[in-house]
Every structure is written in structure tokens, then in C-alpha cells.
């Protein structure tokens, strides 16, 4: 079996929560259905780190929930290690685990109590669980002395480290990480990323990670799917994806007034292909000679000091921009 996860033509819709009437009072014909995932197919290889990149609300978490057996798709098929997740969900529960963006815990309980509860749910004995989570937490640089403190006293970073320990305590074959580092401080983010890399290298583990942080996805993943509006719009390795914009080049412009500069650039190149990143204007163009001349001329005319204009290596953000005409942050 080559694939860990096989998703075929999966669609999932929800009744629009903005309806004024309760859903049971509306006939199914008149219900306003919002499709979070539209006819998605994904084949995730064994021992792969697979990334799903997309803005908030694009359907990433819905896919993770469907693989986790927490949501039943309207149509389509999901197989986990060859087992049908829809017909026999109980058979795959031992093989997977999940870390979500919200570190959901019994907050009055300590990290130890929460982790023991999580392990017992999988039938793991306390002494084995304690050994396992002590090791994971130490690799994540979790302060030992906090293990018996109520989790409501923890920072977001510490809570998420316990959440990651909960995900790995059961020795899953597949771990589903739904934006595991969102909201973490840079140090905690690095701890988590290092841990994932190390664990993946040591174990027969498939990792599926969703994020809207393209740097994280680029750094960790073997293959990446880019999602927008419930659909997969591109999939491949980072190199394969960046080839999508090969007919154009990516440039970064630095000036004394980037707000004004952005307006100027948007009058010259396609306005939908401009990003402001690291306080620089980033844009795509096929012909830099003409464009550069015009930009510099307009900057002078508008008394904006030109600092430099450099060609840069395209990132996944550029791919996303090229494919959708918007940035990953646009919808946050």
C-alpha cells in the first residue's frame, strides 16, 4: 500500500448559520448550504509530510476533521491506510491522532491529568503514558515543574506543547496537525518544528499539516496542496509549485514610502499580483525592463525615494497570489 490517506471526490456542505430561522424550521430545498470542501481528491503517501496551505476558511480544517472521523462527508470516499474511514471509523481511530489550532483541554486540570486522561482513552496504562509524555515534553522544552499546574495558568505556547504531546502519546501512524503553531511565539514555533522533523525521521509516521504560514509549510513539507474556496487549486513539491509562475519573474521593491509606492506599482503591473511583504512591495511581471523604467519614473514624479529593486526566488505566497489573485492574509 503506497498511500496513507486516499481522499476521492469528497464534498462537505453546512447549513448557513446566518439563517434567521432555526435550521429544522427550513425545508431542505430552501436551506442555504455553504460548501466548505468541494469535490476534493488527495493522495497522501506513506511517511510523507504533506502540507495543506490556504487562507482561513478555505476548507483545510474540514478536511482534517473528515479524516479524523469527526465529520461525515456528503459525498466521496476517505481511506486511511486502506481502511474505509466512513464505513468502519472505529478501525482507524487507533491509527490516527490530531493536534488542532485550539489547544482544547480541561483547563482546571493539570497537564499531567489531561495527558493521562487522553492516554487512558486509548487504553494506554498510566506508567507507559507518563514515560512517553515526559519524553515528548522534554523534547519540546516544556518546563518540568509545570506538569502538575492547572492548564488555565499556561501560556498559549505551553498549552500547545501539551496538545502536541497529547497527539503523539498514542504512537499514531498518521498525525493530523491543524495549524499547530498558530499564535505561538517564535521560540515555541521552532521547538515544535524541530520536534516534528526529528520524530518524522525516527518513525514510520505520516504527517499532514495545515497552515496559512507558507514559511512553515515550505520548511517542513515534502509535498503541498494549495487550497482556496473549498478546492485544491495546485499540488506538488515546492519546486513543482513554483514552476507555475515560471513565465513571470518576482521582484521586490524598496522605497521611502511603500504605501505610495504600492499605488504607483499597481497602476503599472496587474494590481492583483502585488504583495506587501517584510515592508517591501513584491510583484510579478513578464517584462521587467519596461516596468522598472516606468516605476522609477513615477516614483521620482511622486517624490518617493527609490531604494532598490531586486529579483527574488518565488515563494508559495507568490504561487498563491498568481493562482487566486489574493494573498494568504487577505481573508484573515
Amino acid at each position: 500500500m503506497k498511500y496513507s490517506i486516499n481522499i476521492k471526490n469528497v464534498t462537505k456542505g453546512f447549513v448557513d448559520k446566518n439563517e434567521i430561522m432555526p435550521s429544522w424550521m427550513i425545508s431542505s430545498r430552501n436551506k442555504n448550504i455553504f460548501y466548505a470542501v468541494k469535490n476534493v481528491s488527495l493522495h497522501i503517501k506513506k511517511q510523507e509530510i504533506f502540507g495543506v496551505l490556504g487562507p482561513n476558511g478555505c476548507g483545510k480544517s474540514t478536511i482534517i476533521r473528515m479524516i479524523s472521523t469527526l465529520l461525515i462527508p456528503d459525498t466521496g470516499q476517505i481511506k486511511v491506510l486502506g481502511i474505509d474511514a466512513l464505513k468502519t471509523p472505529d478501525k482507524i481511530k487507533n491509527l490516527i491522532n490530531r493536534v488542532s489550532v485550539e489547544a482544547s483541554f480541561f483547563k482546571r486540570l493539570s497537564a499531567r491529568e489531561n495527558l493521562l486522561y487522553a492516554a487512558r482513552l486509548y487504553g494506554i496504562e498510566d506508567k507507559i503514558a507518563i514515560k512517553k509524555f515526559t519524553q515528548i515534553l522534554s523534547e519540546l522544552n516544556f518546563p518540568k515543574e509545570k506538569i502538575n499546574e492547572p492548564m488555565q495558568k499556561f501560556s498559549r505556547g505551553l498549552q500547545q506543547k501539551v496538545s502536541i504531546a497529547r497527539g503523539f502519546i498514542t504512537n499514531p501512524k498518521i498525525i493530523l496537525l491543524d495549524e499547530p503553531t498558530t499564535g505561538l511565539d517564535p521560540k515555541s514555533k521552532i521547538d515544535v518544528q524541530k520536534f516534528l522533523k526529528k520524530l518524522h525521521a525516527k518513525n514510520d509516521l505520516t504527517i499532514v499539516i495545515t497552515s496559512h504560514d507558507m514559511n512553515e509549510i515550505e520548511k517542513l513539507c515534502d509535498r503541498i496542496a494549495i487550497m482556496d474556496n473549498g478546492k485544491i487549486i495546485a499540488m506538488g513539491t515546492k519546486d513543482e509549485l513554483t514552476k507555475i509562475i515560471m513565465d513571470k519573474e518576482v521582484y521586490e521593491l524598496d522605497s521611502s514610502n511603500n504605501q505610495k509606492a504600492k499605488k504607483i506599482v499597481s497602476n503599472i503591473v496587474d494590481a492583483s499580483e502585488i504583495i506587501v511583504e517584510n515592508k517591501k512591495i513584491r510583484f510579478h511581471t513578464q517584462n521587467i525592463t519596461n516596468v522598472a523604467e516606468k516605476i522609477i519614473k513615477e516614483l521620482k514624479k511622486n517624490k518617493v525615494q527609490f531604494k532598490n529593486l531586486n529579483k527574488v526566488v518565488p515563494s508559495l505566497e507568490d504561487v498563491f497570489l498568481e493562482l487566486t489573485g489574493k494573498t494568504l492574509e487577505d481573508e484573515e
Partner: peptide
């Protein structure tokens, strides 16, 4: 507490 998904995911 938001733990229901974890409880329902467990075997």
C-alpha cells in the same frame, strides 16, 4: 472545555 472532539476521536 472544547475537548469533545478529542474524546469522540478516541477508539
Amino acid at each position: 472545555e472544547g475537548t469533545i472532539e478529542y474524546t469522540f476521536m478516541a477508539p
